[in-house]
């Protein structure tokens, strides 16, 4: 039974962290520029491509 209580405690910590992350996102207005965030992988790609060329 104690392990269940521990599991509940850990899950609550995870849920609280999720809520805090959500609040942080709203504070930084990340939800308003998701299009820009969705382009981040392309920036990685653009950085890698010149290295490929050199190789």
């Amino acid at each position: 039974m104690e392990i269940l209580i521990l599991t509940v405690f850990v899950s609550l910590i995870v849920a609280a962290a999720g809520v805090l992350f959500f609040a942080w996102n709203i504070h930084h207005r990340a939800h308003e520029h998701i299009e820009q965030l969705s382009l981040l992988p392309l920036e990685e790609e653009a950085r890698r491509e010149p290295r490929k060329d050199r190789a």
Partner: peptide
Amino acid sequence: CAGCVWLIQQLFTSHAGALRISVNSAR
């Protein structure tokens, strides 16, 4: 859309003195 954001980023970074751009499509 994301295409518009990307296009504007590319146009911005092609100029001298352009350091960083943050495009807020919702607003």
